[in-house]
Amino acid sequence: MLEFLAAHKPGHVEWLLLSATLFAIGLYGVLTRRNAVGILISVELMLNSAALNFVVFNRFVAPAACDGQITAIFVIAVAAAEVVVGMAIFVALFRHRGTIDVNRMNTMKD
């Protein structure tokens, strides 16, 4: 059992597939969520999976360096900034229109 488990230590393909799955789920959320906040949450999911991807590549391509981790830190920081601005916009939008249902936000059509 232990041998089996040790022999099936996750390689880069498994790690990358995991991050890609998280990304795909986030993408699905971005495309289907009706609430703007929900979309933002899904975007966070995607950003997180991207950060994970960086760390995975760092680990499997250049284990001695830490550039991937630094990039992940940047991603987290940018995500924080994005959430701040996004949430502010939603709050303003909600005040202005009374809803943040993106299906009703089709003024681009007119």
Partner: peptide, 14 residues
């Protein structure tokens, strides 16, 4: 096709 909804455009974009 022009729904004015960003998500629809997103689908096409992806």
């Amino acid at each position: 096709l022009q729904t004015g909804q960003v998500q629809t455009y997103g689908v096409w974009f992806v």
